[in-house]
Amino acid sequence: MVYLFQILNGLGLGVIYFLLAVGLSVIFGLLRFVNFAHGAFYMVGAYLTYEATRDGASFWLALPLAALGVAALAGLVEALLLRRVYKLDHAYHILVTVGVALVIQELTIIIWGPIGASVAPPSSLSGVLILGQFIYPQYRLFVIGFTAILALLLWWLLEGTRLGALVRAGSESAETMALLGFDTPRINTAVFALGAGLAGLAGALAAPIRGVEPFMAVEAVGVAFAVVVIGGMGSYLGALAASLLVGVIQGVMATLWPQGASLMIYLTMAALIAVRPRGLFGRA
């Protein structure tokens, strides 16, 4: 029974990882682009939530504001910088996104200082839920439910709408799309903003759980990449399964062997890619 509780805890982490990883995966799928600034967008989402709630705004307003703010920032970065390097080697993708991540990290320290801060969950969700002998924070339950609904919407967006069809067609052959007269640069910007906006939303949701600090980006990039590698790159279902798996591993390890929690994630990943390099749901 103790494990049930840990698994529930893990799912709470997992859904946040899902938002992070699916954003990375969507960007990767369409743009074939490794985005090392992804963690920085997650961090900005968290800090925007911190700033808005500190200034007295309601959390329910801060949440969409943070996601949209990050999406706008990312759209700008894509249009000004990233689209110039798509055609170049991956080395330059890494160079430019590491550069962007550094600039964002340092600006964050300049604006908000080097020391972290905590963010209060919305007052309506600050209580706990008592289930028999278990106590579970209401806010975490909300995060799980909210993300579950969002995951369905996202799935519909990517699989059931015209935008989703364009994204999938673009990742098959961007050239054909351009020849057919689609405005691929605009689709690229939109997709990058969507992916980064999801990272921003993940950061906003994570802020009341883990607080904010200027180095939260690195940790997030690591986990998001691990999830994408485990799940299979460019796969929606893979990102979902892998993020929940990673969250549950972390939750269960927290009681078994807290120090080795992260190691176990990467051990799982290493074992999986040794057997199945494409990941759980990746295409060969």
Partner: peptide, 24 residues
């Protein structure tokens, strides 16, 4: 066993794995 950007991600994954091995 993988190419291009997949290859990059796998090497990064190993970097993380060995880091946490040392950390643990």
């Amino acid at each position: 066993r993988r190419q291009g950007v997949y290859f990059v991600m796998l090497t990064l994954a190993f970097a993380q794995f060995f880091y946490f091995l040392a950390y643990t």
